[in-house]
Design a protein around this nucleic acid. Sequence first.
DNA 1: TCTACAATCGAATCCAGTTTCGAATCGCCC
DNA 2: GGGCGATTCGAAACTGGATTCGATTGTAGA
Lengths: 210, 210
Amino acid sequence: MARKPADQTVDREDILWAAAEVLHRNGYEATTMKDIAAQVNLTAASLYHHFRNKDFLLLNVLEVGIDYTIAKLEAVAASDLSNADKLAGMIRSHVVSVTGNVAVGAAMVFEIRAVLNVSGKDGDDSFLAEFVARRDGFFARRDYFESLFRNVLLAGIEAGEFRAVDADIVTKAILGAHNWVGVWFRAGGRLSGEEVADVLVDAWLAALRR
Amino acid sequence: MARKPADQTVDREDILWAAAEVLHRNGYEATTMKDIAAQVNLTAASLYHHFRNKDFLLLNVLEVGIDYTIAKLEAVAASDLSNADKLAGMIRSHVVSVTGNVAVGAAMVFEIRAVLNVSGKDGDDSFLAEFVARRDGFFARRDYFESLFRNVLLAGIEAGEFRAVDADIVTKAILGAHNWVGVWFRAGGRLSGEEVADVLVDAWLAALRR
DNA sequence: TCTACAATCGAATCCAGTTTCGAATCGCCC
DNA sequence: GGGCGATTCGAAACTGGATTCGATTGTAGA
């Protein structure tokens, strides 16, 4: 027995999303390749056909996660709404993403340190180099992601729509609140993702209202 | 060479705080007993004289962390300030704790899942039972901690000091923002812990102001 | 001083998890 | 209807890290 027929074959994407889910449940180190493989009905060994190793797999998960989130955010950020409406839309969009796919959201929050730690990973030279490059690219994406929010805040303050708060800190506060949603939110709870988003939009807008 | 003289001997407390720091740097799974031991100039083996195993060690870290935080918070919560002032004091107190000891704050945020996962840990029966009991105790403390904030919100709304927001969600948003501070805050940055706290107090009070 | 205990350590054991390898299948195209 | 690359698998090699053990040595008190 070796390869399963077509109705079984999975591709990178499938593995990535499945991995995100497992990672969310267990955390990076606590998640074994076997766990991830099981999620898509493969064996651990098979995973190595799709990814160089565990680190790259995680990095991939983070990459698709951040790209997915940024794409949704950019749509709103690029619109010609007022800054208040933009912020509202972005908060809603982000919170809904997080609640809709807890896996991605929480992976973003929790697994960073694991990726961060290049130290300790025995240098397979070429691997290491590519890993570091991609990891730094990921961090850059994260910064960009954060800047989307910060810029709206800044623009809103500039335009007199918002109070003159410390945009840097408030941005991080907003994102912190969202990230945390990924930790406690459970589908089927008292509120839907949209409803949670509404509460947060209301709160932040009130916090910024002049 | 065996035991070092008195000038070397450390006690549980020392190990706990040192462990919190290492844990913050590396995350639970990525932190080895050796790492923790090194932080207090011991060998991994010596740690087992103080703690049953790695899980209990982590649990201990979380316990002292939450107790420390709760103690500071209760002082404010029990005062007879207005709810707005109480909330301000509590936010300040919590944020300053987190920035003052990033280790505790971040350990609180990140390591929970590791502790959570009882499943998988081979049942050493008695160990397992005590572990679960203490773990549940910890979670109860966490809930209590959260309730301190929520109750002030609720009381403030009741008293007409605050807008009628969804106290549950807003509480979690506040705590999420604080937890996140533990992740990004670095001593020596643009703002001190107190200054960050001030920004957040201002924001949340504005968000709740009628 | 002698004894019992607390605190350490180095070495050894054990084990789970990653990664590698060679073989087996499948689907497809010539 | 044979060849070829893409996939997958089981088994085995390796590794790092948790935990155990027995020995050693300060310390405190009888």
